[in-house]
């Protein structure tokens, strides 16, 4: 699979690393010459120097033969234009745009970008709910944040230690989907007892995250 990533920074670095290790063919577009040279030294990827919002640079990057274009620049209008040119001119099937202003999620979607990602939105929803992220080891939004999946490691002070799932009074709209015990995954049932150091993978709606955490951890902060 051919993938084009536009932008720079850690996100591009780690995405490229992960895609290359999976055997995908990655092309990075960036408009800074020094940075491009650095990327070329670090990654087994094609690097194109130029402004990805112009059709001929996307063409040079092989957009016509790419299955996916991911726009991760810090400029929202640039990300929109990259995805639109990729879709309209090069008929790229999957496009992703990162937005910095969360209000652009809705706008970009109305303008036809298929996948819109907003880091600010995810982080701010956490802060709004006053959730401390200490005990959450992993969190991923599903379907643009309509559902949240979080991974929580159980420590000895949590009130749920020693209880079976049926004893825990979880609120509506949440489910403990999976447990990891000593690196082994368990699909829990009502009589499964929670032990210290278990990792719970919990699916819930975003607005009740804090309530769920309160039940599991016994406190909010």
């Amino acid at each position: 699979m051919n993938i084009i990533i536009v932008g720079g920074g850690k996100q591009v670095h780690f995405l490229t690393k992960s895609f290359v290790s999976k055997g995908y063919n990655v092309t990075i577009i960036n408009n800074n010459e020094e940075y491009c040279k650095k990327l070329a030294r670090m990654h087994r990827a094609n690097i194109v120097l130029g402004d990805a919002t112009t059709p001929y640079i996307l063409e040079d990057a092989g957009a016509a033969y790419s299955e996916m274009v991911i726009a991760l620049t810090t400029d929202d209008p640039d990300n929109l234009v990259i995805c639109q040119i990729a879709e309209k001119i090069f008929k790229v099937r999957k496009t992703f745009a990162m937005v910095n202003d969360p209000k652009n999620i809705e706008i970009f979607r109305k303008l036809g970008v298929q996948n819109v990602i907003s880091t600010a939105d995810i982080i701010s929803s956490f802060i709004e709910q006053k959730i401390s992220v200490d005990d959450i080891t992993n969190l991923f939004p599903i379907e643009e944040g309509k559902v949240a999946a979080m991974e929580i490691e159980i420590n000895e002070q949590f009130p749920v230690v020693g209880q079976s799932l049926s004893q825990i009074n979880l609120p509506k709209d949440t489910i403990i989907g999976c447990m990891i015990r000593k690196n082994e995954p368990i699909i829990p049932r009502g009589d499964t007892v929670i032990k210290e150091q278990d990792k719970l993978i919990i699916l819930c709606l975003p607005m009740i995250q804090s309530e769920v955490l309160k039940v599991i951890r016994g406190r909010i902060d």
């Binding site: 112009t54 209008p77 640039d78 234009v81 706008i107």
Partner: peptide, 29 residues
Amino acid sequence: DNTNILIAQIAKIIYKVPKVIARLFEPSR
């Protein structure tokens, strides 16, 4: 250019403004 394009599309597609014109420096877009 890209800011002009974004705002023009918001005006045209979301707010249905009858006449929308964007100035572009780069001819290829």
